[in-house]
Design a protein around this nucleic acid. Structure first.
Lengths: 127, 127
DNA sequence: GATTTATAACGAAACTTTTCGTACTCTAAA
DNA sequence: TTTAGAGTACGAAAAGTTTCGTTATAAATC
C-alpha cells in the first residue's frame, strides 16, 4: 500500500464518502448510491475506483466475479487531513478562525454545542 | 462584477492570501511575496490575476503604468465559503465534526480556546 | 529620437482531473 | 455451444488548472 498523503480529488472524495457510509462495496453499489444524486455512468465510477486503488486510497478484494472495495484508513483520518489542508491553504494555520467560521456557517444544535464544550474542556484539562 | 460563487483554485487562493495580507497590490508586489516561498515566474502571477479578474475574484484599477489589484469580498467571506464547501464535501454538513477535527489537528492556545468559548456562549445565548 | 526597462496581453504547452466509449472476460442460462 | 448479462480493463477525449515563452506597449533614460 502506498503512502497516503494524497489529497483525494472531489470525485474521489464523493466515492470515499459512499464507502465510509456503506462500508466495503462493489462498484455497482457505489454507482447506485452516487447515481441517486447526480447523473453518472457506471464505468466512470469503475475507473475512479481503479485509479484510487493505484493511489492507495482504497484496496480491493475479490469476491466471486466482482471486486469489493474498501476505503483505506478511517473517515476521521481523511477528514483530519482535509482540515489540516484547509487550515494551511486558507487560514494561515489558525484553528480558531476556522472554528469560528464553521460555527457561524452552520447552526449547530444545543447538543452539538455542548459536545464541543466537552472537547474544549478536555483540551484545556490536558494542557 | 460577476457572481462570486466560484471556488478559487489553489493557485488563486495563494494570490488572494497575499492581497488579503498586503491589501491592494500590483502584480510585482504579489509576485515578490509569492516568490519568497516558491519558485514562480512573474508572468504566471500576472496571468492568474488576469484570469481572476475575469472570474470576478479580484478587481483592478489603473495606477499609472501598472494595475493595482483588489481582492473582491473579505477574507472572512471567502473563508466562510471554503468552510461551507468542505463541510458539504467531507463532513455531511456537520459543523461539530469539523470543529472537532480542527481542534485536534492544531493545538490552540488557552486564549484561543476561551475565545471559542465566547463564541459558543453567544451562539447559545442567541438561540 | 533611439534605447532600455518595466509592464500588460496573449497563446499555447504541460499537467491534472473527469468522463465515457469500446473491448475483453467470465459465468450461467437457453 | 451459443448467447445474454454483469463485470473488469483500458485508452482517449474533454474539461479544468497551471506554467511560461513571446510579443506588444508605454514610459523613462540616454
Amino acid at each position: 500500500m502506498k503512502e497516503q498523503t494524497n489529497k483525494p480529488t472531489d470525485a474521489e472524495l464523493r466515492i470515499l464518502r459512499v464507502l465510509w457510509q456503506r462500508g466495503p462495496s462493489t462498484v455497482r453499489e457505489v454507482y447506485e448510491e452516487l447515481h441517486r444524486d447526480r447523473p453518472v455512468v457506471y464505468t466512470t465510477v469503475l475507473k475512479f475506483l481503479q485509479i484510487m486503488t493505484e493511489k492507495g486510497l482504497v484496496t480491493r478484494e475479490d469476491a466471486g466475479r466482482a471486486h469489493v472495495y474498501h476505503a483505506c484508513g478511517s473517515e476521521e483520518q481523511a477528514q483530519r487531513r482535509l482540515v489540516e489542508n484547509l487550515l494551511d491553504r486558507a487560514f494561515g494555520g489558525s484553528a480558531q478562525k476556522l472554528v469560528l467560521q464553521a460555527l457561524t456557517a452552520r447552526k449547530a444544535s444545543a447538543e452539538e454545542l455542548s459536545e464541543i464544550r466537552k472537547i474544549l474542556d478536555e483540551l484545556e484539562g490536558g494542557a
